[in-house]
Design a protein around this nucleic acid. Sequence first.
DNA 1: GTGAAAGCGCTAACAA
DNA 2: TTGTTAGCGCTTTCAC
Lengths: 353, 353
Amino acid sequence: MEKKKTSLKDIAEKVGVSTALVSYVLNNKAEQKRVGREMARKIRETAEALHYTADRVAKSLRTRKTNTIGLVVADFNYQYSRGIMKALEAACLESNLSMICCSSQENNKKFAEVLKVLIDRQVDGLILVPVEGCEKEILELTKQKIPFVLIDRALPGLQSNRVTANNEGAGYGFTSHLLYGPYSRVGFISCQSKLSNFADRKKGYLTAMKIVDRMDPLLIKEIPNLHPDEEVREAIDQLLALTPRCDSILFATEALAVSGLRYINQLGIKVPEELGIVSFEESDAFELFRCSITHGRQPLDRIGRIAIHLLKQAMNGARGGEQTLVRADLHVGESCGEKWDLGPGGERRWRRR
Amino acid sequence: MEKKKTSLKDIAEKVGVSTALVSYVLNNKAEQKRVGREMARKIRETAEALHYTADRVAKSLRTRKTNTIGLVVADFNYQYSRGIMKALEAACLESNLSMICCSSQENNKKFAEVLKVLIDRQVDGLILVPVEGCEKEILELTKQKIPFVLIDRALPGLQSNRVTANNEGAGYGFTSHLLYGPYSRVGFISCQSKLSNFADRKKGYLTAMKIVDRMDPLLIKEIPNLHPDEEVREAIDQLLALTPRCDSILFATEALAVSGLRYINQLGIKVPEELGIVSFEESDAFELFRCSITHGRQPLDRIGRIAIHLLKQAMNGARGGEQTLVRADLHVGESCGEKWDLGPGGERRWRRR
DNA sequence: GTGAAAGCGCTAACAA
DNA sequence: TTGTTAGCGCTTTCAC
């Protein structure tokens, strides 16, 4: 790094022109500025010969753009986070952006803290997985006109660019999957949260249960926090003690499902015979359970691409407020007895065991 | 962002002093530069009132430091990656550094590509999980005097700052764990790789097997690539077909273990009764297997702190070449029959089932 | 104790 | 077509 990097000036001197000309040529504005072809060639050659690479810092100072975006995920351990990071990494590379990744640990203090760091770093824009109680910070972003896109979750009553899954539809579909199978008392384990994804998943569940007239408030367990081994155990104990007994469980998220399955493993309950299981989100762990777990999957690559697209628009001054829904699909495992998929139109397609 | 950020100059004008003075005060060089106490107070107050925050880009241009480091992990999906990211995130926050995270997908082309991007971004230093065949890139870093620290793996014959686990010792310990249990034909499934971690784990395994005179080359399976569902299946088939049959398997890494366990699940083989299992590295999945899997764990927080420490030293011009070994501990599950731990001195401490 | 001024490397408005 | 030049916001040397 100490190699006395060649600068525009070095090239300019060597070729015997001004730095301006060099800048034009090297930024592909040669034609626009109508630089002579021969001149341009010479400049490019010299730049090459001197191993010139632009100083991005100087460029940033001048242009007031860093070509860097910030990403705040909830927790690096979520499958969602890793998938979206991979997708965004690729999308950024294409768009010549760099990405600084942070995690909020589902904590709004930490969220505010990393947001501050990112803004201090003068990122051009942000991609955020909001956490409970971060409305203030988000509003502040709007006020400061810092471009951002929310992913995975939305905040109730907040109009902004966002890309989320069709959680309500998926909640309906996943619940129905159980109801059309050999189950009727479907339990729902989720978190106490105002975040849209949880609320929407619950709505979908409720609709599905009401339609078949199976709705029972005792089947719904919303536990207080997000790292919840103990609470999940209690919830499961209670669900299994109901009369008639709860015969299947829909987990609202990966972390809950992993906790729950670990406990179900301990209890020695047979899945799918004694208890059907469906979970939102993915986890590596689902395939190593006694039987593979039926679960929802979001199209993370697609979400990443759309998020970057929206963010770039916003960074170019677009007004924003675009809400994109992507489809979360059911990935059918062996945890619900019968096997069938939801077709593209939502129709059910049975598969033999 | 368009709020016409206040600059040093604004403060200087308002207070009626030069920008130099303001810079001194706000960088806590007031005393060193012997700025009047009253003056300093006034400057600080004004800065506060005007909501001044330094323009890091301008600062970087001047100081030639970005306070940004680059991290290249092998794959965001590895437990190691997520843990180290979390650890490094915290360590960076403390040291007022930002981190740009990239993944190499275990591919040296991609590795070179992201490295180039990071250098182009003028990061002050790098933390790298090297991949097979990246020697050239690493040597280039040394030549260009770009500070870096290798983690997790080392390159054979390359002297550089690094933080790795005591893989050889762990390989010996983990194998012994099986041998002191009810197993004697311990299979070893690893990758064909020159990276130090694989080589060292194998060395440890070999030593343990030789000591009890159980060494048999047929028990060693080194599969060609790193995303290996099929090859792992074949390896397991072959191990189980041996006479005498292989009675336990040591997986060299998480990804191999997950592949392997999925297959073992399909085969319906009983763990630990018919087959003992130990794996290096962690995975969420290990707890949802029929029985929890005994596995090695690296002290990721510690590795992160040490790596940042070494990197900062290097960024301050230290010569480098420091090699730190950290202990990987065995986390005992139920996949080897009896339960016992390795004590701090390496002695075995039995636990009752 | 304080300030003037020279850049860091680049871009872009303006001249020629 | 090409060149001149004025900064972007900050740090730091040197002078007072």
